[in-house]
Design a protein around this nucleic acid. Structure first.
Lengths: 197, 197
DNA sequence: ATTACAATTAGTACCTAGTCATAGTATTAA
DNA sequence: TTAATACTATGACTAGGTACTAATTGTAAT
């Protein structure tokens, strides 16, 4: 089925978004246009070629910036990250996050967002939560957008890194947590890049 | 530095394992051998070419991402429940629960198991976690079976129901948490399960 | 020293999934 | 009719390989 250019490009974007492992050839078949048209479309939409897409997806896992966690391992989307300093992530509450009857977010999703952010902010190969104290300040409903802000506040007497996370919906605190993180090397020494790629 | 074939292949394997984004050319330079030698080595070790490696890494990540959204499936199976008294659930740690690199369970899954058990044990329409203090006692690895035991221990001064959860792997405590649960009516009405999966 | 054989290197053709540049056709709007 | 827009086609080139054959080098045993 041939559709308009605009519509095709809209569909192209979402198709690639959904399954980034699709080639131009397959896309061409799918939309009944030539490969060249698909390529022009990608140009227009600034969508990189297959291999680069795959690489991007893969690199998140092995990232040199986010060492201890892949960005997609983080529950929610990281929008700001300064290792060993602070990090911010956004989680939009969808149907799968809520109790079906009252549409209130299940607590573990808020915890997961905050906890994974605390892991991500640690500049280390291995970061694990050793302990945490958390409080659910108010209920979060479906479709609300939760912004979690993590801040590394220091170390405790046992050498655990303390990360404080506050989560907000429209400037209102909905969750706070203090995470005591274990890290493999307890030093924030030099930046170790293993740029072997 | 030239080393023996066996040693080079050992190093090759770990190098690629560490950074799968390395080309044969770069590997050849690294080990001071020809590209062909590297290729023979990869053949011998059944290590696929760069693009396939990247693809695998990317696909794993893609799966993990998709899976972490359906967190509802990871809560574990309730095997014993006496409302407002105690509850027990079992969670077997699968690949989707762990960090891909070190196979250690991600904290939020242990939290989710304990938290959802705390919710389930409350005999009420609406049960929500208001606050909790949790401790991860030791790391849990893939394939291990986590048994969470929840016990309702009373109420605090604000009327929040306190549930204590200990999680074990083979009689060893791996997680403990104290959950302060909000409930809509402080009455024990009819049995309400939010089994919305 | 010569042979035997493994280890290594070299070279070729071919493949995929692209890039870039250029040219050409079809349809539509002024 | 002309011009613009959308689409298709072609050729030359690239990275990072596979698959194969052939030649060379290293080393250990006879």
């Amino acid at each position: 089925m041939r559709v308009t250019k605009v519509e095709r490009q809209r569909l192209l974007r979402s198709t690639i978004d959904e399954s980034p492992f699709i080639t131009d050839e397959e896309l061409a078949k799918k939309f009944s246009v030539s490969i060249q048209t698909i390529r022009l479309d990608r140009m227009a939409l600034s969508i990189p070629e297959l291999r680069k897409r795959i690489k991007t997806v893969a690199k998140n896992q092995w990232n040199e910036t986010v060492k201890s966690l892949t960005i997609d391992d983080v529950i929610g989307e990281i929008i700001d990250l300064e290792l060993d300093q602070r990090a911010i992530s956004i989680l939009i509450i969808k149907p799968e996050h809520v109790f079906s009857r009252n549409k209130i977010t299940r607590g573990h999703h808020l915890f997961a967002q905050a906890n994974s952010l605390a892991v991500a902010v640690i500049n280390d190969e291995l970061a694990l939560t050793a302990k945490s104290e958390i409080t659910f300040k108010r209920q979060v409903k479906q479709t609300e957008r939760v912004i979690a802000k993590a801040k590394v506040v220091g170390e405790d007497d046992k050498g655990l890194t303390i990360v404080h996370v506050d989560s907000f919906v429209e400037n209102e605190v909905v969750f706070t947590g203090r995470f005591y993180m274990y890290r493999s090397t307890e030093q924030k020494g030099e930046i170790v890049h293993e740029n072997s790629h």
